[in-house]
Amino acid sequence: MAEVRPVGIVLVSHSAAVASAVAELARGLAGVGAEVPVAPAGGTADGGLGTSAELIAEAAAAVDRGAGVAVLTDLGSAVLTVKALLAEGDELPEGTRLVDAPFVEGAVAAVVTASTGADLAAVAAAASEAYTYRKE
């Protein structure tokens, strides 16, 4: 059986602490043995609040195993920067996709789904599906 190449996950937040904590949370909830490459891209390159195109490109390259990369973002410049990088054509690995999903719940759904060996479309669908989870 051919080895299943996992989808990579990039988590983009205005805050480095939020991005890495959500990555840790999603990995933790995905369970032991889940071999999903997850990389946070939080804050600006100098450690402030904001979005860094450079950190996003580095994170996407780091998690790319050839099966596509799902990018989840918080808001504002995080969304716009990823969209602008995707429009550029050569800044992010082939098969990189911005996923329309809530940041925390979507990240957990994406990592858990990716850990089953699901493809990019299934990972993206699971993350978007998290929007339908109601809390009251």
């Binding site: 390159a45 904001g50 979005t51 195109a53 920067t81 602008a84």
Partner: peptide
């Protein structure tokens, strides 16, 4: 435009970057 997207760090980066590019 590419330089603005890389360096601004706020929403104005991708917006002005896209405008110029």
């Amino acid at each position: 435009g590419r330089q603005l997207i890389s360096t601004v760090g706020g929403a104005s980066g991708p917006l002005y970057g896209t405008l110029l590019r």
